[in-house]
Design a binder for these strands. Structure first.
Length: 296
DNA sequence: CCTTGAACCTGGGCGC
DNA sequence: TGCGCCCAGGTTCAAG
């Protein structure tokens, strides 16, 4: 679930606790998530100081002293939480999961920081998330990052760039915007929301937003603005909290209350003066929510 | 190159 | 209460 705004929110929530702290020990409670952890993962990161947290697309990066970087992807149901103080159990005690939630605590980072000891716990019921190790100086060539497109924040994403990506494409806009090689970080929710804001139908071929010379047509300008705005609004709201996802401090993001179309099938379109009804269709195996009346 | 569909995994919600 | 089915924020792979 976590799309770009949720990962950004997680990063901001974890940074005050993690940056500058000593990562005393990484505790792996199982050998894999979606993929096996690297062989040397726990040993390589334990005893290292944490320099900084950052984000690229939907990936969280934890830079360590010495040049190693932990790369974490939250998949569909991953979340981090912080617990203050040392681990409550005696060293060597067998772990006995109590609640159904605790049994999905797969990774525990034991920290020693300025504010004392703390644990940062990664929980992921569906285990679609994954972690890897990379070197900072070659991270751009890492398979996760090599083909990623532009971030939808800042100025790199503009209509000229999208025009080059969309030119000649018959692929539906929905699929084109989900392609991480074009825009890095958009997911199902924010693509639906951005298309609604731009009054564009999700099934419309991406190439129809490009003119004969390969330049952006007017709707493409609107789409760029819509993407930037929805991402900025969602980050400002602390992301969306659906089902599994919560912020690192345990509080809930509240952007889901601002959804205009996502998960609103059968409800009234919120576009002023539209009067349409939100519909749900399936594209490439995933739900798309949109208003057939005002999205063309 | 394109597209769709299945796979990965668990849990929540709903109809019966 | 329970069973079976569908659905879920993502990514990757195989197949047509």
């Amino acid at each position: 679930m976590p799309e770009l705004p949720e990962v950004e929110t997680v990063k901001r929530g974890l940074a005050p606790t993690m940056e500058g702290a000593l990562l005393v020990r990484a505790e792996l409670r199982r050998p894999d998530l979606r993929f096996p952890f690297p062989e040397n993962f726990a040993a390589a990161v334990s005893g290292r100081r944490i320099l900084a947290l950052s984000r690229r697309a939907k990936y969280l990066m934890i830079d360590l002293e010495g040049g190693d970087v932990i790369i974490a992807h939250l998949g569909m149901s991953g979340s981090f939480r912080i617990e203050a103080g040392a681990a409550p159990k005696a060293p060597g005690a067998v772990h006995h999961p109590r609640g159904k939630d605790e049994k999905h605590d797969h990774v525990v980072f034991h920290l020693d920081g300025e504010a004392g000891s703390a644990r940062v716990i990664y929980n992921d019921p569906r285990r679609f998330g994954f972690m890897d190790l990379a070197r900072r100086d070659t991270i751009a060539e890492h398979a996760f990052f090599r083909e990623l497109g532009e971030e939808p924040t800042g100025n790199a994403l503009d209509s000229a760039y999208l025009a080059t990506r969309f030119a000649g494409k018959v692929q539906p806009l929905k699929a084109a915007l989900l392609d991480q090689r074009t825009i890095a970080g958009l997911g199902n929710i924010y693509v639906c929301e951005a298309l609604w804001r731009a009054h564009l139908a999700p099934a419309r071929p991406a190439g129809t937003l490009v003119d004969k010379r390969g330049g952006p047509r007017k709707p493409l300008f609107l789409l760029v603005e819509a993407i930037r705005a929805v991402i900025a609004d969602a980050i400002a709201a602390g992301g969306s909290s659906l089902k599994d996802h919560i912020r690192a401090d345990g509080s809930l993001g509240y952007f889901q209350h601002a959804f205009s179309v996502y998960d609103r099938e059968g409800e009234a379109c919120r576009m002023p003066g539209c009067g349409g009804t939100v519909a749900r269709i399936v594209q490439a195996g995933r739900s798309t929510f949109y208003c057939p009346r005002c999205q063309k």
